[in-house]
Structure formats: C-alpha cells, structure tokens
Design a protein around this nucleic acid. Structure first.
Lengths: 219, 219
DNA sequence: TTATTATTCAATAGATCTATTGAATAATAG
DNA sequence: CTATTATTCAATAGATCTATTGAATAATAA
C-alpha cells in the first residue's frame, strides 16, 4: 500500500464528513438536533421535508458519524454524536460568515437593524442574570425548552408572546434567545417587546452555543 | 420576510463552504496550502492532478472563500485565506477521526499493514531466518545495533534507509525490528520498503523482548 | 390475528460534480 | 512582432446526489 493512496483514502474519509455537511437541508437538521434529540417525524415537520427524505438525510448523517439514534417503542430519536459536532458547525458558520459576502448581504437584508438590536454576550448575560438584573426569555417551542434551557429562563414560545407578554416584569430588561445566532425567533421577540415599550435585547448566540461553551444549563 | 427562505438561503451558503471541503483532492490541496502559498503548477505536481484540474479545484476553493491568490509575473500563487480555515480543517479531521471507524482502520492498516503485513512472531522469525528465507533488518541507530542484535541482522538505521535500501535483496522478504512493540521505527521502515516494492513485515516485538525471551543474540 | 403508526427501503428522473481534453488568455523573453 | 510558459476556459461523458414515489418493515394496540 503506497503512502500516496493511504493519504488519499484518509482525505476521502474526511471528505465524507464534509459531504454530509454540504447540503442546506442537512445543516438545518443538524441545527435542530443541536437543541437536543428529536424524532424523525418532528424533524420532518420542522424542516418542511417529507418524512422519507428526512429519514434518508438522517441516515446519511449517521453514516458520516455526525448523529446517532436510539429506538423508543415505535419512534426513533436522533441526536448529535457529541459536542465536537457543534464546534465543527460553529467553525463552518464562522468561516462562511467571514468569507462570503453573500452571507452578510442575507443577514442584513433579512434581519435588518442588526446593530440597533445590540446583542448581549453569553458571559455578560450569565453575570447579570445571576444578579437578578434581567429576565431571561426562551422563545423556542415548549418541547425544545423542556429538553434544556438557560438557568432561570422563562419560556414563552414566540407565537404565544403576544398574549402572554404581560407575564413579563416590565421594570426589568428582557434578554431573548432561541436556537442560534441566525434563528429569527429572538429577533422577532425583541421587536415585539420593544413595540410594547419593554427594554429588550437578544442573546448574541443561541442555546446550542451556550451549552457548547460549557455554561450552566437547566432542565 | 419569509424566515423559512432566509434560513434556507443562509444554510445554503454554509453548505457552499462545506461543499468545497467535500472532496479528497481539494482537502489535499488545502493541506499543502496550509504550509504556505504555492503556485498552481507546484500544487499540481505535488497532488498528482493535471494542471487544468488543479486550477479548477483551486477556483472552486476561491469561490467558497477558503483560498485567495495573487499574481507574480506569469505565475499565480494561492494561499489559505486565514487561520480560521486551518482551524476548520482541524475540526473536520478531529470529528472524522473520532467518529469514523474507517479512519481508524486506515491508520492502523497503514501502520501495521494488517493482512499482508501482520507482524511476525519471534519464534517464527527465528525459524525462517535460519532457513535463510528472510532478511532481518535492524533499523535502530548503529550504537544500539553494536550493543547487541538478532543473529544475522543487517543494520540500516531508519534515517539511512532511503538511500541504502538498494543494499537489500529485493527477492527476499524483509523483517524489520527496532526497540520494542511501541517503537515506530519498524513501522516506518516497513512502510518505506513497501513503497519501494519490497515485501516487508515487522517483528511483533523488539530487541529487548527478543533477548528477554532467551532467544539467541549476536554481537 | 389485523390495524395503525413511525420509520426505512428501493427505484428513478433530473440536477450537480468530476476529470479530461484541447483551445484561449495573459505575461514575458527574444 | 513571435514564441514560450503558466494558467484559465469551455465542452463533455460518466459518476454521484437529491427529492419523490410507493412499498416494506417493525413495534404496538385492538
């Protein structure tokens, strides 16, 4: 066996992992899985793909060693293999953001007023939350919240925010977070709360990044 | 603003970067570029690809924002965009190594050369060496060799092997040994010899174990 | 047992990727 | 100017990837 072939074979294996990441739908599935384990059905619903297609993408991810699965009765739950996968996704995102002007264009055109919403950094939030200075608001769906959330976070899914915003302490600043830095839920929440006159900002990152950074998690 | 489309578009951009990584040849090019900037021609030579093919891969990498280029006279030099790219490659490698049994298999089979190059046991080597069926090769430094070695062993320290491998009988199988079962010298020697087309295996153990087992020693 | 539910499998058309070929371009030397 | 060298472009066949379809499987309930 020549070392040339060995190297090529080895790179081919690395490429297999990259190939698994090289599809927008699979990246989206991975983002959802970064929140916690999910059934095929739930992933299909949330990603808008057919169940069969979702299943096939998940199997591809499993073959590349990025996700694992377990059966519970008739349902099969998928999860990320470990935190390195979150870190890898983070690096990919970072390089893409830095290097692709297109990403910038997308973010600004959709999320608008990026700067005026001044995101708060994770550690700063942790400090201020411990001092009781802010209300931490989780705007993800209830299932995602119960799978794990920031310490002391209140859960009001975005679609309930309108009728439940009175649950929030008007005198305190609210920091909203959702799935990740490009998840629009938190942006929306902040916009709504500000319309109601509350002081609101969003967390710079999302729950997966928080967890991956080794910061405390609840639930 | 359809947030679904926004998300999908954004993930599609991330996927573009992953796609650039999703090919063994491009990963190899990136590895070379991690050492410093290189001309297209140099990259083609070292990767074994045609110049046109190399050029096309490099352009793909450039479009994904992973590499940049500059012209100097008639030559165009490519380089990695920044250190984040190196970090991304590192994460990719790490996840692949951790998660893909195949990588493990490749690495071990390259180093131990699994089937055809299973290590040979001490007593078997003794028998076959006495029958003159194998060349016993000691790849330790000369001082260690002269302090004691296997009967009839030839001493070619590993760092001299490349220029002295013609000293070996190409028609005969070579069995290399070094300091012990965890010493890499013999692994390397076997790999080098096999690249040159010789039949080569390594001794299961090393000289100390051989001696300790009470087998005959010379010098 | 049969029915139901969640998931996977298998086949397939259309899209995308890859390596190859030979021609085109761009900088420089003579 | 022409010739040379390094690189890129364009076209293409064959391989691989994607989403869809409908059937198969596996666990559970009736």
């Amino acid at each position: 066996m020549s070392s040339i072939n060995f190297k090529h074979d080895l790179f081919a294996q690395f490429a297999r992992v990259a190939k698994a990441l090289a599809n927008a739908n699979r990246l989206q599935l991975l983002e959802f899985l970064a929140q916690g384990e999910r059934s095929v059905d739930a992933l299909a619903k949330v990603s808008g793909l057919s169940v069969a297609n979702t299943s096939q993408h998940l199997q591809q991810l499993r073959q590349s060693g990025l996700v694992a699965s377990r059966r519970q009765g008739v349902t099969i739950f998928y999860r990320l293999c470990d935190d390195d996968v979150v870190a890898l996704l983070g690096m990919l995102r970072r390089v893409a953001e830095q290097r692709l002007a297109e990403v910038d264009r997308l973010v600004t055109s959709y999320l608008t007023v990026k700067d005026s919403l001044e995101p708060i950094a994770a550690r700063e939030l942790l400090t201020r939350a411990r001092e009781g200075l802010v209300t931490v608001l989780d705007v993800r769906p209830a299932e995602e919240y119960s799978a794990g959330h920031l310490p002391g976070a209140v859960n009001i899914p975005l679609d309930e925010l309108e009728r439940r915003f009175e649950d929030l302490d008007r005198g305190q600043e609210v920091v909203a977070y959702c799935r990740g830095p490009h998840c629009v839920l938190a942006f929306e929440a902040v916009a709504q709360l500000r319309e109601r006159g509350l002081r609101a900002r969003r967390l710079e990152s999302g729950f997966p990044e928080w967890k991956q950074a080794g910061l405390p998690v609840e639930g």
